[in-house]
Structures are given as C-alpha cells and as structure tokens.
C-alpha cells in the first residue's frame, strides 16, 4: 500500500511540534508566563476542535460546551481527590473518567434535544450549561460555590507529554471521523437535513454522535484543566467560557480543524503577548467575532472579489 501524503504531513507536524516544545522547555527558553500557557493552549485546542465538530461540521450552535468541560473537570478532579494512585495512572484515569462522564451527559442531553434545530437548539444547550452550573453550585459533594481545591497538579506543564498526546488523539480522532462515512453523514445533516433523510441518513443518530464525541473531548479537556490549575468552581465554566471557545472556532473557520488549532494557539497566547490589554481582550474578541461573520456572510467578500477581478480584467484589456 502506498503511504498517503496526508499521513506523512501529519506525522511530521506531530513530531516537529513535540520536538519544538521539548526543546523550548529543556533549554529554558520560555519564561514562567509562557510555560504556564502550554497546557491552556492544549486545553483550548481540544475544546475548539471538539466544538468545531458540533458547530462547524454538524452545523448546530452549542452554547453549553463549557458545561461539558465542567462535568469532565469535576468528575476527573473528584476521582483524583478520592483515589490515591501514582501520578501517571491517576491522570490517565481522571481524563478517561472526565471524558466518559461528559459523554454520558452529552448523550442524555442530546437524546431529547435532537428534535430541535438552529436557534432553539442553541438556547437549549445554553440552558443546559446554566443548569449544570447551578446544580454544581447546589450539590454538597462538589463543595457548592466554593468548588474543589487541592486537586493534584498531574497535568501541569511538567506533564506536558501526556497533555500533548491527549491533544493529538483528540485532533486525530475528530479529523478521522469527519473524513469517513459517519463524518459525511454529519456534514450532510448540516447542509440539508431533509435531503439527508431522503438518502437514508438517520439525522438524529448523527446529531447525537457529534454531540457525544464533542462532549467526550470537552470532558477530557476539562479534566486536564482541573489538574493543571488545581482549583475549580462552578463559575469557572460559565457562559463566557463557552463563548470564548466559540470565538476560537469562528475565527479559525467553521469546519476547519487546522483553523481551530491555529486560532486556539494564537488566542490563548495573545493576552500574554499583549500584556496589560487584558480589559480589551474580550472587547477585541467580540469585535473580531462580528467582523468575521459580516465579512464572510454579508456578500461583502464576494463584492470585493468581484471588484478585484473586474479590475484585473480591465487592466488586461488595456
């Protein structure tokens, strides 16, 4: 079998980026602030790529992605806090537990809401995000509003290899699913669900599939987040967090996994690079979000391209 060019590029990208991170860390080329960014970048890549599956490929807006993240974070953290174990197996299990718990919730939420579409579905995901938040706030074993603390830091920058592998797995699994008969079915639901049904695609099945896979990786990302920061509270995972992930997906390009990765890296590192402009950060995000949609969707780009092309033609005619 001839080896695919795509596979070579992927392997190279993975090896090179791992080598780069290792080199930077070992040589001490990163200061404390930049080192502290490594894990958040990984977490945001996982969140963005998994949200992209739901929003970019399935075409449904999920405003509750932070909710799945919080479920993963709490489930993983509760495990590490209650079960004594060496660091490596502990974090691996915490990640799996976080992911599976979030996926179970994704399924439970997905089954009833799959009948909805568009605006309504978006609002229901938002509602579920808020419900999860207020339930976490009210439960005693999650320690209510004070949240969980002293979570072992098993996923901080010293354990970057584990996080790196988790990121790679997330990206590969989602990229592979998207480029398969299941992924095509998901995209067909986005493009025209009536036509999808007419060629034998069970629309709800693929909505759930996308939701559950998305929730799973958001959960894993949440578990990593918890074991990097050490403290989690219900308010950590609010609506704003969901929107931040959405901003990454939209700016990176809906339906582009590469775009999500690049946008996640840039948008996570940006506040650190632009120190002091933190107040402006969310403002800039919101402007970027609006500008991005207006440029892409209002026909503005087409007009611009048209003018550009007609300009070229005129020149050629001269």
């Amino acid at each position: 079998m001839k080896v695919d060019k795509k596979i070579i590029v992927r392997v190279l990208a993975i090896v090179l980026s791992y080598a780069l991170i290792t080199f930077l860390l070992r040589m001490g080329l990163l200061n404390r602030q930049y080192t502290a960014l490594l894990i958040p970048i990984g977490v945001n890549i996982m969140l963005a790529v998994s949200l992209n599956l739901v929003t970019g490929f399935l075409g449904e807006l999920s405003l509750g992605h932070a909710g799945f993240m919080s479920i993963g974070a709490y489930a993983g953290a509760l495990f590490s806090l209650h079960v004594e174990m060496p660091a490596l197996p502990s974090i691996l299990l915490a990640m799996v537990i976080g992911g599976v718990t979030a996926a179970v919730f994704g399924f439970l939420i997905g089954v009833p809401v799959l009948r909805l579409r568009g605006d309504y579905l978006a609002i229901v995901t938002l509602a579920f995000g808020e419900i999860i938040k207020s339930v976490l706030n009210a439960l005693s074993f999650t320690n209510g509003a004070r949240g969980l603390s002293k979570i072992p830091l098993n996923a901080n920058y010293e354990h970057y290899t584990i996080v790196f592998i988790a990121v790679v797995i997330t990206v590969l699994v989602i990229a592979n699913v998207v480029d398969s008969r299941h992924g095509r079915a998901v995209c067909s639901v986005r493009d025209n669900y009536i036509a999808a049904e007419s060629v034998g695609i069970h629309v709800s099945r693929f909505k759930i599939l996308a939701f559950v896979i998305g929730a799973f990786f958001a959960g894993v990302a949440g578990a990593i987040y918890a074991h990097n920061v050490g403290i989690i509270k219900p308010t950590t995972f609010d609506y704003n967090q969901s929107i931040e992930i959405l901003v990454i997906v939209v700016l990176g390009g809906m339906g582009s996994i590469k775009g999500s990765i690049i946008a996640a890296i840039i948008l996570t590192a940006l506040p650190e690079v632009l120190r002091g402009a933190d107040d402006m950060r969310m403002l800039l995000y919101s402007i970027a979000l609006i500008a991005m949609i207006l440029i892409n969707q209002s026909g503005f780009k087409e007009k611009l391209l048209e003018r550009f092309h007609s300009g070229k033609k005129q020149k050629a005619g001269e």
Binding site: R184, C187, S188, R190, D191, I194, A195
Partner: peptide, 9 residues
C-alpha cells in the same frame, strides 16, 4: 423541486 444538495460537500 427546489434543489437540495449538500452544498458544502
């Protein structure tokens, strides 16, 4: 009647 293709595929 009104064409329903998967436009972005």
């Amino acid at each position: 009647q009104n064409i329903r293709l998967f436009k972005k595929l």
